[in-house]
Design a protein around this nucleic acid. Sequence first.
DNA 1: TTTT
DNA 2: TTTT
Lengths: 162, 162, 162, 162
Amino acid sequence: MLNRTVLVGRLTKDPELRYTANGVAVANFTLAVNRPFSNQQGEREADFINCVIWRKQAENLASYMGKGSMVGVDGRIQTRSFDNQEGKRIFMTEVVAESVQFLESRNSNQGKQGGQPGNTSNQAQQSNQGGYQPQQQSQSKEQNPFEDSGEPVDLSDDDLPF
Amino acid sequence: MLNRTVLVGRLTKDPELRYTANGVAVANFTLAVNRPFSNQQGEREADFINCVIWRKQAENLASYMGKGSMVGVDGRIQTRSFDNQEGKRIFMTEVVAESVQFLESRNSNQGKQGGQPGNTSNQAQQSNQGGYQPQQQSQSKEQNPFEDSGEPVDLSDDDLPF
Amino acid sequence: MLNRTVLVGRLTKDPELRYTANGVAVANFTLAVNRPFSNQQGEREADFINCVIWRKQAENLASYMGKGSMVGVDGRIQTRSFDNQEGKRIFMTEVVAESVQFLESRNSNQGKQGGQPGNTSNQAQQSNQGGYQPQQQSQSKEQNPFEDSGEPVDLSDDDLPF
Amino acid sequence: MLNRTVLVGRLTKDPELRYTANGVAVANFTLAVNRPFSNQQGEREADFINCVIWRKQAENLASYMGKGSMVGVDGRIQTRSFDNQEGKRIFMTEVVAESVQFLESRNSNQGKQGGQPGNTSNQAQQSNQGGYQPQQQSQSKEQNPFEDSGEPVDLSDDDLPF
DNA sequence: TTTT
DNA sequence: TTTT
């Protein structure tokens, strides 16, 4: 049945890259999507939409996009439930991204940050359809060896969409 | 920013019609949308997607569609948070339907059920874009005078999308 | 780059099934999609949108859906140009359907038409996500041995989208 | 009936702004949307999709976006036919943009170009939902006094979508 | 060249 | 008639 979502928004944090027990990459991220209208107090609000992306695209997203980056997402809405630590069943709704487009990196207006952009060619061919030239990750991120470490954690592939 | 969702699915229950303190109609409903692929056990699963619809279209939906009806929805994803009875902040994600299309009523294959379809013309002009001829609601629903009573309840219009 | 189209409409004619020189199935069809508003003369108009679909889904569409059938389409807009018989360059725009959903067969309200529905199981599993039970094709179609004959014609696979 | 299209692409030319006899603004533009896959010669192709936008948003687009600018479009596919100068009936398909998002101006990486950005506030509030800070138009455009002159031409509002 |  |  038809289930299609298209979003353009900004990452609220750096994407969280994990690996399933079978070594499949998954990244979770939240997109802040500004609403096209103001509320009754005249303020512009945003929706904070949870997204997941799998495999190569998960790795590319984690490599090139970070907090504040603007991305486009084309995917499907998925719901799932799990029991939390208090034994309560939690229902969650998220968008499974089938493709992402990198629209603007976090620091695209801050000038180059050095680094060797050579290894971006693969990414550029795979998902950088917007012609955007990705930059190296910010220093603060590289300095923290525990963030997005990419080490296998205990995650099931049950949610693998294909 | 771009935020667009299109769904086709079936109502898991009769829509819940309410009115805000200002008399604005709102209907909540959940769509079961079958996934296009099978899981690792070879079963077809579904996503259960919460939706809201406002005003005239809310009333039409509640009048003509019920549990099992198939509808198409064109809208936006919205997130909001509220504190539940235990004082815990709950985040929820739902689709605000900007338009609905009635694709198949619950009982469309059960033959006519009598009733006076006269007042459907307005609806047909407003949102029955599929040419579908809506039928009267099922008897069981008409028998329960408390279901979807339509009486004003205490609801804020803060979430009114326009 | 993002390019996503979702449509629900009715086939203006039976789909035209062809095969490329390499034996790949393609079906062309036009969807009449009624507009949600009336024009200045108070009439409801429709858009007539050309679509293509490839491979197994092309064959399923041609087998189960015909003139007047209602389908949902999820796909991308594609443009191409070719030189017509007068040597003039013609530009055309069409929707490449990545998936179709069968919403209502042409004769779904006319009762069964006999036939052996046994071979529909494969289709039902593959793309009949709406739970719709497809019927056999109408007699007039079966009587015309030249219509949608399915014989290989001279068509290039250049336009194959994947 | 459902008819929804979302695109992200680049303007192939400056938008063409016109006014109907009643003074309603319309802008036509073509979006080059790169395909996510390569053809059999290994080249990346693009689709060139004709779009129309009405009223205030037409004027904003013409003011702030030009050849090469990247925009997001949320709209519907529309088809229409007219008789060309040789008396032949021509069918055309285009996307009626209901909203546009300005993603990147033509010269966003070339530094400021002077000019008085004061009058952009209205636009920023109305449709610049991406937080992008629009720049003044390029000089070459300002030098040509006949381009996009904005003078009323003979155009009917028959195609006004709402 | 258009569907209900 | 096409954009980066």
